[in-house]
Nucleic acid binder design. Structure first.
Lengths: 229, 229
DNA sequence: CGGTGCCTTGAACACAATCAAGTATGGTGG
DNA sequence: CCACCATACTTGATTGTGTTCAAGGCACCG
């Protein structure tokens, strides 16, 4: 493995947008527990138990299609993310959630929203979080739908890059634990296509990839590709 | 025009899921007003003013892509639907909303969520509505992303059919005021593709289309196509 | 070492977009 | 009411992007 890549994303979570908005909610948080890599946290159709807060690691939420056995990944959960937002007010979780890396989690337990003995203010906070995540989803949706594979993948790297920047890590050198197949399922393409485009990006000097380690060499170039149809 | 098609969807709205959940909210509803066909209700980036309740007609919400001039339609709003749910807790609406048919609307006015002097119960109702619409969005998203054009269009007709059934109209004979182009933009395909598939469905005896009037002849057949990849 | 899983690369194919006519339809003015 | 035009819709031919199928490479681990 090439050691010129810096992999420094293993410290505990710091500030994330969710945290400031959710102070009240977090007082309900139960003790932190560890989930080994490639372990299922939530199975498909499981009863809603509350929200999970990710402290470390990486998880994926996926829907399995009945017809074929290929999955579609609807979310990656990074440290600071809340798992289950799309199931608040529902009886069951949607899809299944599995850890990609060994992850640290805590459960914010409530079976129904009414069980939360919290104030009007925190309800508004919840509303705001839901609303924001809805808009993000929406944004991601039409991007994925209407853009070429090239711009989707370029945008993916840009998003990852700013995620690391927000958390105080280098935005230009990071490790993504998910496999090519996972990235492909997230962006709705074949893993071969992901490989091919990454190779091309490397030839064009946009980035360097070594296994799961990535170096962003030309952020502007990537941004240009992400923005064009 | 073939008169064997029954077009009976011009009575006022009846029960819709939203209504039971939103009684409190609806007390804020301002007087009903009329919007002529092909008129803009919300321009892109407009300041958030509140939710609009659709009483009659049909509207579309769309994002325009800067690069090309083709739009992507993110929502159709039928009677009983609320416009602006994805912008609650935001300063601005997302995208623009335009009437396809002459429509009757009322505004539920509030600039910020805090302005709503409503109870904890109604906040929970709002949360529930947001949550549900988030899940529906999600569902639609992965469908559109991962299914073939055939199954997307088949699913579209099935969805429309059950929408009419829910509102007490015939699920097998209805009028859809939107153009082929609108349907295409909603499903993220070319209008030619919509035409072609509809023609094929007609040849296969699944449905009959005459302008904007549609007859569902074989719901099970359509459902089969919708369910397969 | 030999295995297993993941990734890369090549070649052929398929689906849907685009380009290009040609055909209805609806609205307007004479 | 009809002639006309503009717009929407349909259909065909061609192209291109991305999938699928297939083979080979590379690293990790026993």
């Amino acid at each position: 493995m090439n050691t010129s890549f810096t992999s420094s994303n293993n410290k505990s979570i710091s500030a994330s947008p969710s945290f400031n908005d959710l102070k009240t909610l977090l007082t309900f948080s139960q003790p932190l527990f560890t989930l080994r890599k490639k372990t299922t946290l939530i199975t498909n159709g499981e009863k809603f138990k509350g929200l999970y807060l990710v402290h470390s690691g990486l998880l994926k939420q996926s829907q399995l299609k009945k017809s074929s056995e290929n999955e579609i990944i609807t979310h990656f959960f990074f440290p600071g993310d809340l798992i289950g937002l799309d199931s608040i007010c529902e009886a069951h979780y949607s899809g299944s959630v599995t850890s990609i890396e060994t992850s640290g989690l805590s459960l914010i337990k409530f079976s129904k929203i009414e069980d939360l003995p919290i104030t009007k203010t925190s309800h508004i906070q919840l509303l705001r979080i839901l609303s924001r995540s809805m808009r993000n989803e929406h944004n991601r949706m039409w991007r994925t739908l209407s853009q070429s594979s090239d711009s989707r993948l370029a945008y993916f790297f840009i998003t990852m890059s700013s995620k690391f920047r927000e958390q105080g890590y280098s935005p230009n050198a990071f490790r993504l634990p998910m496999s090519r197949q996972d990235i492909a399922n997230y962006l709705c393409m074949a893993s071969e296509t992901v490989s091919r485009i990454i190779s091309r990006f490397e030839n064009e000097g946009l980035l360097a990839a070594n296994g799961h380690e990535y170096l962003i060499l030309n952020p502007e170039g990537l941004a240009n590709i992400a923005e064009k149809t």
